[in-house]
Every structure is written in C-alpha cells, then in structure tokens.
Amino acid sequence: MTSEKRESALGALQSNLKKGHVYRREDLLISSNAVDRHLKQLLKSGVLEKLSQGLYYAPKTSIFGRLPPKEDDLVRAFLKDEEFLILSPNTYNSLGLGTTQLHNKTSVYNHKRHGVFKMGNRSFEFRIKPRFPKKLDKEFLLVDLLNNLNSLPENKDVILANIKKMLTNFDLIKLEKYVLLYGVVRTKKTVLSLLHDLR
C-alpha cells in the first residue's frame, strides 16, 4: 500500500470518530484495515486517548481543556451492555439521614463484571447484582444505604434513628416494593418493622 493510501485510510478512520465518544478496539475494525497501526498513530497525535486495554476515548475540549468521558459512556463501552447502575456512597448524603463523609469510590451494579477496574484516571468498583432499578431514586438509595450500613464510617444508631423520624418523607409503597426486591435480609427486617410501626 502506498503512503498516500495509508494516509487516506487513517483519515477515513479519523473522520468517523466523534469527539466525546468512547470506543472499543472492535468498534474501529469496521473503519480500518490496519486497526493496531492506526490506533498507534491516533494515540501519538492525541486524536485518541487510551483508557484501558482495548478501550479508547476521542477527547472533547472546552475552554477549560480536555473533558473526561461521561461515566455512562465509559461503563457502557466497557461492559458492552446497557444494564448497569452507577452510584457513589456520596449520594447517600442527599437523603439527609446523617451521612456526611465524602468517598472516593464509584460503584457500578451490573450483571457481568466484578472487581475494581481503572479506566483513564478513574477507578470503578464493579459489583454483580441480580437486580437493580434502571435509575436512582431516594427509595432505592435508602435500601442501598441500609444494605451497606456496616461499611459506612458514620454512627449507625444515629442513621437508624433519623430513618425512623424521616420515614414518611419517602414513598412508602415504593419503599416496601424496593426493600422486597433489593434489600438484604437485615435491611428487609429493619424497613418492614418500621413500616409496620407506622400502620
């Protein structure tokens, strides 16, 4: 192949890349007949960034510099799946139940992968769960907080007392449904007992 053809093949691949998108190596095979050589060239020129083995990002820039990939896009490309839920223990703080710690941790509930994986500058703790909702809401967060209560540094008695006081701030029908679907045994006992006391 002549150098002109090699350059036009690389140009064709580059023109198909969308800024801000995360790609797997296999995604690029459609547009390239020499994907590993092209990847090396695109990484060298800064058109792509390597996030982890087989995972690449076409950086988007703003007035502040290069933007990181969106978490959802990153996890979707890594898992090759739409079925996942991203959450951080920091989100528990939004419930106003006495959790105030900031955690440098992002969990991904999913059906495929388990373990801590580093992608770019971020680490994700992938946890296989049989069931989880499609999106976060405060009722699921409460169930998840109780599921993970023993791993939190805050005073557990204070949190439980605050839950008892503030239980009516939640959708109780949804909470009962969620605790039966997603709660561990201890969480089910706690929440169902509190709901029983309200009736």
Rank of each mutant, 00 (worst) to 15 (best):
L167A: 13
V184D: 14
V185F: 02
L146P: 04
R131I: 13
K156D: 09
F140G: 00
T190Q: 05
E139L: 12
Y178C: 03
G183D: 11
N162V: 02
L142D: 01
L160A: 07
L145G: 02
D157Q: 10
D171A: 11
L145H: 02
T168F: 10
D137A: 03
P130Y: 07
I159M: 11
D137R: 12
L172S: 09
L175R: 06
K189P: 00
T168K: 14
L141G: 04
M166G: 15
K156W: 01
V143S: 08
I128D: 04
F132M: 04
P133L: 13
D144Y: 03
D171E: 14
T187M: 02
V179W: 03
N169D: 10
F124H: 05
E154M: 03
V143R: 12
M166H: 08
K177Q: 04
L172W: 09
P153Y: 01
N147T: 04
L152E: 10
V184S: 01
E125Y: 11
I159L: 10
K188Y: 02
D144V: 04
T187F: 03
P130G: 10
D171S: 09
E139P: 08
K177D: 12
T168D: 13
L167M: 13
K138M: 03
D171W: 12
K135H: 06
K134M: 11
K134G: 14
L181A: 15
I128V: 15
F126R: 07
K156P: 00
E139D: 08
P133D: 10
N155H: 01
